[in-house]
Design a binder for these strands. Structure first.
Lengths: 241, 241
DNA sequence: CAGAGAATAATTTGATCATATTCTGGGCGC
DNA sequence: GCGCCCAGAATATGATCAAATTATTCTCTG
């Protein structure tokens, strides 16, 4: 899944401090560490849409040289998580209504497809794992913990992708998450964690019954519901944010 | 389409010399130039699947420092054009049968969809442009010019993506091309340029008649036909290459 | 004594940084 | 408002360090 080889990034379940250098992570190259930190920052909306990002700023903030930072940025830009603004300037992309439509379209295809595959391949252990994630998700929702909701929701879908065992499609799907991450945070922040979409229960039941079509349908509804909220909220507030 | 801002890369219609530094391109940053050169090298199969790529080697070969090369590599790796082999080594990916299946699946969805949109948006000028490209393609095929075929075929589809005006989906589609480029070259090199797929005529007619569905069907067949040949040729020769 | 294997030395290549250079954008004066 | 100048940020280089692969040697066994 990780196109850059190394072991899976450990998910930070709580807000993380940028200056915290994980001792266990020290074995990884600096550019990889920077990449993951920045990636999470984008994915969970810690960087607002439109916000500018400077190499030297990050370099100082993270206590690293500029070469690793530069590499991490190139990677994120190539993945669509950040945007190169022609004149050597980098920022978090603003999503247009058209962009959202494209993202909805793409996820509407790729997520159900991966779910289909996942249903065929999932072991009972996999299902338990998904259920556990979903339970934690419920807790986060009732507790109103937005950050935890965002992370767990991503983790849930990501786990699904891994089970599907289709690295290229999973990489595509991951790229989509990076693109709407910042806006998702903004939208959810405005609506609170109540009535957030969660068709996961229905999906898990279908997976358990090995009804791949039903599981795919459920995830499709989950995706549509979530993404349409973003679209709607975005259209309402003019451009975005 | 280009996620990194700058103007569209000029397509090299003939084989290009790596050491040639285009004077007109000098305005572009070195890492961008390197990226485009490497990208074309991958896209048109000048780098064989499995072949190793070293930073310092490219650095000397292209007469640039290692930082720009490094950045270009990170970008290509993020796009799936190159592969990071865990132990800090980079190579051109080998495609497994499963990978091919994923690529076929993805293109089967994204190419028709972009064609649908392109048909709705294409001006008469656009159609002329596509027709011109397709004519050149015919010339390349009858002449047996493999390299020209590969470049023109890519250009044709890419132009289609641009007309569709869906940057995110187009970026996805571009990424897919990068993944099967090297293998495509190997397969075509083995079969010659005869009986290569070209459903472009039918597609252009449909586009001209504004029959989006028919155009999408035609492109779908074009994609399937081409990709299945890769799959077949790959399965026959064991792993790949 | 020959050869397989492990340990080690040597070389190649990647990772990082400090620094020099170039370019962009904004402010100031005209 | 237009053009010049300057601060700051990005780009690019080469040196340095670290890691890994490859080559070499040494040892132990049959």
């Amino acid at each position: 899944m990780d196109s850059h080889g190394w072991d899976a990034p450990e998910m930070t379940t709580t807000a993380q401090n940028l200056s915290t250098i994980d001792a266990a992570t020290t074995r990884l190259p600096a550019h990889e560490v920077i990449y993951r930190q920045l990636r999470d920052l984008v994915l969970f909306g810690d960087l607002a849409p439109g916000q500018a990002v400077t190499i030297q700023g990050l370099s100082e903030r993270l206590g690293a040289g500029m070469t690793p930072v530069r590499e991490a940025l190139r990677r994120l830009i190539a993945e669509g998580a950040l945007e190169f603004q022609g004149n050597r300037r980098v920022s978090v992309p603003l999503l247009s209504a058209d962009n959202i439509s494209e993202l909805i379209l793409a996820r509407q295809w790729v997520d159900p497809h991966l779910t289909l595959r996942a249903t065929e391949r999932a072991t009972l252990g996999d299902l338990d794992h998904l259920r556990a994630l979903d339970d934690q998700l419920d807790v986060a929702i009732t507790r109103g913990d937005l950050r935890a909701y965002l992370e767990l929701n991503y983790l849930f879908h990501r786990r699904l992708y891994e089970i599907a065992d289709a690295p290229i499609l999973a990489h595509l799907a991951d790229g989509l998450w990076l693109r709407f991450g910042p806006s998702l945070r903004v939208v959810c922040g405005r609506m609170g964690t109540q009535n957030l979409p969660d068709k996961h229960k229905a999906m898990l039941e279908a997976m358990h019954a090995r009804d791949a079509e039903a599981a795919a349908r459920a995830i499709r509804e989950d995706v549509i519901q979530g993404m349409e909220q973003v679209r709607h909220s975005l259209e309402q507030s003019g451009a975005l944010r």
